[in-house]
């Protein structure tokens, strides 16, 4: 469990003050995977540096399983850092060390006995499926394999939180899926709390239970995936279940509306019911249907001809538990 409360980070650039984090608060329960998504410049890197204590936040707190990290003394800094295991975009393995030696590094820092390091390293390599590469150097590994070593290394000191900074941004789509599966597998087996910082919505879709949208140093939307998707006017919902941005040209006059529905409703024949009930022609312009956060969601853009009672249609749809947003009349 990790709780971040009102985290602020202000940099000085000459006489100018740059607010990189402007009161970020979030809480992730044990065993959950939380995504923090944002464009470059939103404050993602600053957040990572504050969470790992590479930079001290200006104010606010970070606590892991009830232990406050942000305000620790310099003396406790090194042990505080071990509460959070970190996975980097480019793995950042040490080229001079073999796979096994890389995973052993954090244990060497703790002065762990050699025999114990050996056991632990072989367990971790088994966990990430790299046992046969124990004596290979990083230059002999593929990008995905390097990231697996990075994950094993991050887990070596049994941290409470696994912090992944753009873990798949340097990988191809297939390897991305493998690494996300591994992160989920690790979460299931170790019941660890995972925080994934990313700019890729696909990562959030595939791996996360909940998500926060970071923008200009603030969290502007957040919640469990199924909740943020259900908010038809929300930006995360649009990003998770995108429809084409442009309205089609040369349409007959009428009304364009977006519908969003989930769960059991998603498999209901919403459109044909609507057509029969109001005796109208419904034209589907665009749509996407996906499994998100364990439920099925459908996002449709439909066109209704002139003369239809929009209020009545909206009332009917809303009564069936469908979110409606009228785009253009």
């Amino acid at each position: 469990m990790i709780t971040i409360t009102d985290l602020r980070k202000v940099y000085r650039q000459g006489s100018r003050e740059v607010v990189a984090l402007d009161g970020v608060s979030l809480s992730v329960a044990k065993g959950h995977i939380h995504g923090i998504i944002g464009h470059s410049g939103a404050g993602k890197s600053t957040l990572v540096r504050c969470l790992t204590l590479l930079d001290r936040p200006t104010s606010g707190s970070v606590s892991v399983d009830g232990r406050e990290l942000a305000g620790v003394s310099d003396r406790e800094l090194l042990s505080a850092r071990r509460k959070i295991g970190m996975v980097f975009q480019h793995a950042n393995l040490f080229d001079s060390r073999t796979t096994a030696e890389n995973v052993a590094y954090p244990l060497e820092l703790l002065g762990t006995k050699r025999s114990k390091i050996k056991d632990k390293v072989s367990n971790l390599l088994d966990l990430v499926g790299l046992t046969q590469f124990a004596n290979a150097y990083p230059s002999q590994l593929s990008g995905g394999q390097k990231q697996r070593v990075g994950i094993a290394r991050a887990l070596a000191t049994d941290p409470d939180v696994l912090l992944c900074d753009e873990p798949t941004s340097a990988l191809d789509p297939k390897t991305t899926d493998e690494i996300l599966e591994l992160i989920k597998d690790v979460r299931d087996r170790l019941e660890i709390t995972v925080l994934i910082i990313t700019h890729e919505m696909g990562v959030v879709k595939k791996a996360c239970n909940s998500v926060s949208l970071l923008e200009a140093g603030k969290i502007v939307e957040h919640g469990p995936i199924s909740e943020v998707v259900a908010d038809i006017d929300g930006r995360l919902s649009h990003a998770l279940l995108p429809l084409p941005g442009e309205m089609p040209q040369d349409l007959p006059p009428g009304t364009i509306m977006d519908l969003l529905y989930s769960g059991a409703d998603a498999v209901h024949p919403v459109i044909s019911t609507l057509a029969r009930q109001f005796d109208i022609d419904v034209n589907v312009l665009a749509g996407s249907v996906e499994d998100l956060g364990g439920a099925q969601f459908a996002h449709l853009r439909i066109h209704l001809p002139v003369g239809v009672d929009i209020d009545a249609v909206t009332a009917h749809l809303t009564a069936s538990g469908i979110a409606v947003s009228v785009k253009e009349a």
Partner: peptide, 21 residues
């Protein structure tokens, strides 16, 4: 690359350990 030094620090290395190891 500075990322490797960051990685060493994040894992709780002292400065002396960063230099030596």
């Amino acid at each position: 690359p500075s990322g490797k030094i960051d990685a060493a620090l994040v894992m709780g290395s002292s400065r002396f350990q960063v230099v030596r190891k």
